[in-house]
Amino acid sequence: MKRRDFIKKVVMTSAIAPVASLRIPFVNVSIEELTQKHFKEMSEEEKKAVIERLEREYKERYGVDVNIKTTPAKEGVVWGYALNIKRCIGCRRCVYACVKENNQSRASPDDPTSNEIHWIRVLEVAQEKLEPGTEEQGIGTKFGDVVAGVVLEESEHYYDPEKVPEDGKMYIPIQCQQCEKPPCVKVCPTRATWKEPDGIIVVDYNWCIGCRYCMAACPYWARRFNWSWPYIPKEEINPNQHYLGNRIRYRGVVEKCTFCIQRTREGRYPACVEACPVGARKFGNLLDPNSEIRKIIREKRVFRLKEELGTEPKFFYFMD
């Protein structure tokens, strides 16, 4: 045992145990919760004890029996995602399947301080938008102002037509790109967010201090903050949870897409992949040369968002 661990253990058992369930006023946190270790520093026993406590706490707070797993990454797997932007119809079914699967906070009709969280944002962009110029503008030609393709600044985030897809429109869903070189991980002052061996960027919701530096650092606006306590109707809580994934978050911590770590580590597809009605979303193991994702990267026209930043996303957009 390292000296540091030994000191921690002594402190834990002698000083803290008798007051473990005392709660700090205002922030309403028990001493036991406050003194919890970083997830990666916990032994298997400690993880078990923490999971038991968390399940008990969620039961007290939300009245639901949940099952929190800590399933580790599989050997020889690095997850990748591909999205066919020619197929996407902008229906946002993925957005709401994600909310449900991952226990994201909903907007409460009764509580104005509730804060609605979506991990996926779908952008509507014009395939071609032309505003002819005038002589007075002195442009030289009358061709004018053109918008075509992926100009994020010209995108519409709150499009709401009767029916999708609309003519002349293209849709770009954006979620965490699971960068190989994630700027968010680099800036985190407490190592509360990191890249798992299967390439997924996760957050320890019990370690994050809520400084939001990662949100400033993310070029894809993929991270969300719990500005208040999450609000989820009891009957809508998904009880199948992962410690690093969809377990219910706390006020004041950051969260993000994990490619549904609670599903993918049990051999299932992410919820957004299953929800997509047009099969635009593809998911698989980047290390397997015969996987569908590798085939897409090999054979389709593929691009990644903001390649010039060198973040190396494992999220690929493609066209047929």
Binding site: I24, V27, L34, G210, R251, G252, V253, V254
Partner: peptide
């Protein structure tokens, strides 16, 4: 500004 001031010891 921080969301979880009681966890500052983590850094």
């Amino acid at each position: 500004d921080v969301g979880r001031v009681e966890r500052l010891w983590h850094m």
